[in-house]
Amino acid sequence: MIKPEFDPVALATPFFILTIILEIVLARFRKADARYEAKDTAVSLAMGLGSSVAGVITAGVVFAATIWVYEHRLFTIPMTAIWAWVLIFLLEDLTYYWFHRLSHERRFWWVAHVNHHSSQHYNLSTALRQTWTGGVAGTWALWLPLAFFGFPPAMIAIQKGISLVYQYWIHTEAIRRMPRWFEAIFNTPSHHRVHHARNPVYLDRNYAGILIVWDRLFGTFQAELDAEPCRYGLVKNLGTFNILRVAFHEWIATFQDVVRHPRYALGYIFGPPGWSHDGSRETSAMIKARALSPAGAAGSDRSPAGPRESHA
């Protein structure tokens, strides 16, 4: 089967809109812990709309590549088998983990992901603040091995949609903790708040899509600490609601770095975000090390440049 019978994201879109409105109303009457700012929410919604348009533009290339790989598949996996859905759930979620981790640890892919972390608020609308340039960055290629193994393209698309729909509800402060067993297995609002936080202790942690077990397995898990409230956004926030700057600022910054220092182009493109040839900026590892040092604890949130900062 080539085309999916249904699109989980399209079906869930009315739910997204209704729950955002509900969260705003509950917050207004102090019935839910949620913080909204009109301009910030407008940017998130506009980024979500732009991401959908960009996805349509690049869909042909992604579709053609997936079909070509599937035509050269190793096996033929039936969409009607329950075991196949269990297997693709696990493999797609593992793929998402590595895609998400790569998008934080290598600048070329961070430039297409940074938009999602640019809001200083954490609410359901933040989930819709998606990239316009993910197709250009080519991270979609990480899912091609699933087609090579024999999963039908429609099956892959459906499972990716299910993952995206699941991740919507974890973008909230209104839910503090889920039951302990659920927190141990699944990604939750608490785990994902850590992922969006700019506190040094929280940087580049909890990459999970649906299952938090991948972070526990690969050493990237960090629990939310009651003594360390999450501060959201970038290490140095943009300070603007200009939609074009939100969408393209890190692409521009990368281009500028390459033009200024062509000798170190590969480092500025594929090094970790915050890398610089002269050490004048800080990567996440450097920020964490400084924050953990006796002299750095007091000023751990003030870095000259880091992985969640615009260099433009």
Rank of each mutant, 00 (worst) to 15 (best):
R302F: 08
R245S: 03
M286R: 13
I243A: 01
W275D: 01
A247C: 08
Y264T: 14
G239A: 05
T283S: 09
D301G: 06
T283P: 05
A298I: 12
S280M: 07
A285R: 11
H261S: 14
W251P: 08
G267S: 11
H277V: 09
A253P: 03
G267H: 06
R308E: 04
I243H: 00
S280Y: 01
E309D: 15
A298G: 07
N242L: 02
R263D: 13
Y268S: 04
W251S: 08
A285H: 06
A289D: 10
P304C: 05
S280A: 14
L266D: 06
A265F: 10
E282T: 10
G279A: 06
A289W: 02
V246F: 02
A253Y: 07
F270T: 06
N242R: 06
N237E: 09
P272V: 09
F255E: 06
G267R: 08
G239S: 04
P307D: 11
G239I: 08
P304I: 04
Q256P: 00
A291G: 14
A253C: 07
I243N: 00
F255H: 10
N237Q: 12
Y268Q: 02
R308W: 01
A305Y: 08
R290I: 03
A285N: 05
A295Y: 00
L266T: 11
W251T: 03
F255V: 15
V258H: 05
P304A: 02
P307K: 03
A295N: 00
H261P: 07
L244T: 01
E250N: 14
R308A: 13
P273G: 07
E282P: 02
V258D: 10
K288T: 06
D257N: 13
R263E: 13
K236T: 11
P262A: 07
S284R: 02
R308D: 11
V246K: 05
L292F: 10
N237C: 08
L292N: 14
S280H: 13
S284T: 15
G296Q: 03
D257P: 00
F270C: 05
D257A: 15
F270S: 02
A298S: 13
R260T: 10
R302Q: 13
F255C: 12
D278G: 03
T283F: 01
D257W: 11
P294C: 02
S276R: 14
V258Y: 05
Q256W: 13
R290M: 04
L266A: 13
D278Y: 02
T240K: 05
D257L: 15
T254E: 07
A285T: 11
V246M: 09
Q256G: 15
P262M: 04
R245E: 10
W275I: 09
I287L: 12
K288Y: 00
V259P: 00
H249D: 14
P262L: 05
L244G: 07
R263Q: 12
L292T: 09
A285D: 13
G279T: 04
E250V: 02
T240N: 01
H277S: 14
I287V: 15
V246S: 01
E250S: 14
D257M: 15
A289R: 11
K236H: 09
R281H: 13
G299V: 08
P273V: 10
P294Q: 06
V259I: 13
D278F: 02
H277A: 15
T240Y: 00
G274V: 08
A291P: 07
G271E: 02
